[in-house]
Amino acid sequence: MKNGHKIIITILAVAMALFHIYTSAFGMYTALIQRGMHLMFVLALIFLIFPVKKGVSRKNIPLYDYILSLLGFVVGAYIVINYNAIVLREGQATQLDIIMGVVAIILVLEATRRTLGLPLVIIGVIFLIYAFAGPHMPGALIHRGYDIQRVAYQMYMTTSGIFGIPFGVSATTIAMFIIFASFINKTGGGKYFVDLAFSIAGRTRGGPAKAAVIGSCIMGSITGAAVANVAATGTFTIPLMKRTGYKPHIAGAIEAVASTGSQIMPPIMGSAAFIMAEMAEIPYSSIMVAALIPALFYYFSLFLAVDIEAAKHGLKGLTKKELPPLKKKFNK
């Protein structure tokens, strides 16, 4: 990736982070404005960072990705700039509104495909088709059907479509936790927690695997994302597990399972918990308390499974020289 590309991505990412930090400190904007700004940055960044196909080099970003990124920025900015006019029209969409809505839907589907894969896109397309094909559906599935103007307006210019509850939670809460977790990782917090886990359990039977469990448990309380957890702890734990005798697929599985539990480890930084609180209309603290016992049992059972695996294959821990001193870690 050339320097010019990196500069554009950096400017967008920093602007997005500053926007969310500002709104978290001084108050959120109206729902559509807050979510429109969030969409504006998210779409612009996705098309610059994620290639059209996995494995495609990003050394030279193609022109169409710049165009898609610009369109993503525009469809988000359109909501923000025209918010007052949209409210005053009271549901009467203009031709430009519909065009922007159709473009927004297509861009969101393509961004979803690039980041999460085709299955979720197929599900979304099926439900969109259902909105148009209602009169032709059998039995209880039948409905009067909707035209493209109604669908585009509902999906793009209300808080019931693209800007629904999940996206609203992302725009108000999840974004800040992601920024916080990234800050922790980039400042060395992730490595500190991994070293702490190795100091505690590294010398025991199957030490690196147990350190992976403890490290992922601690990191999970910060990141709440399995992928981020694997990236932060797996680079240290998997090679050491393999070196002490774990088979590669076993080492990978232990790290994957340990990192997956991070999504329910209090204070639960996983996005699903925030969406649950919003949809169920219950305090987030209630979800956090309810998840405490399941999370502890999850990691305790995984710890036992790792110990049994180590005992079965006679796997040992690391030597004292290979481990960071526990006292030194706490003194930091």
Score class of each variant (00 low, 15 high):
257 V>R: 01
214 I>K: 00
299 Y>W: 09
262 S>V: 00
218 I>C: 04
122 I>S: 03
9 I>P: 08
30 T>F: 07
29 Y>M: 13
289 V>Y: 12
139 G>T: 15
83 Y>W: 14
265 M>A: 04
293 I>L: 15
127 F>N: 00
229 N>A: 04
268 I>G: 10
272 A>K: 06
189 G>L: 05
38 H>W: 12
159 T>R: 05
25 A>M: 14
152 A>T: 00
31 A>M: 09
23 T>G: 07
90 E>K: 14
55 G>T: 11
172 T>D: 02
170 S>N: 06
145 G>R: 04
194 V>K: 08
321 K>Q: 14
189 G>Q: 12
257 V>A: 10
151 V>T: 08
238 I>C: 11
94 T>I: 12
135 P>Y: 02
112 T>Y: 15
130 Y>I: 11
39 L>Q: 10
218 I>V: 05
10 T>I: 10
111 A>P: 03
4 G>M: 12
300 F>L: 14
226 A>E: 08
204 T>P: 02
37 M>I: 00
279 M>S: 10
298 Y>I: 00
311 A>M: 08
139 G>Q: 15
29 Y>W: 14
208 P>L: 05
330 F>G: 07
185 N>K: 08
208 P>R: 02
195 D>F: 01
204 T>L: 15
251 A>C: 13
101 G>S: 02
5 H>P: 00
128 L>K: 12
126 I>C: 05
108 V>M: 09
91 G>P: 14
94 T>P: 15
7 I>C: 04
259 S>I: 00
317 G>K: 13
264 I>Y: 06
205 R>S: 03
286 S>V: 06
200 I>P: 04
270 G>N: 02
310 A>Q: 13
95 Q>F: 15
140 A>M: 15
116 L>P: 00
155 M>W: 02
74 V>L: 13
302 L>P: 03
233 T>W: 07
303 F>V: 09
118 L>P: 01
229 N>K: 07
280 A>M: 08
55 G>S: 12
187 T>Q: 10
202 G>C: 03
103 V>Q: 00
89 R>G: 05
311 A>Q: 10
13 A>M: 13
123 I>E: 01
98 I>D: 09
140 A>H: 15
270 G>T: 03
140 A>D: 15
96 L>P: 03
84 N>H: 12
300 F>K: 03
185 N>A: 10
320 K>F: 06
61 I>Q: 04
327 K>A: 14
24 S>I: 01
4 G>P: 00
24 S>A: 13
17 A>Q: 13
331 N>I: 06
14 V>P: 10
284 Y>T: 01
51 P>T: 03
22 Y>G: 07
214 I>Q: 00
2 K>V: 08
314 G>S: 01
78 Y>H: 13
312 K>G: 01
41 F>L: 11
48 L>F: 02
88 L>F: 09
19 F>T: 12
303 F>K: 05
169 V>W: 08
311 A>G: 03
177 F>A: 06
94 T>N: 14
301 S>L: 15
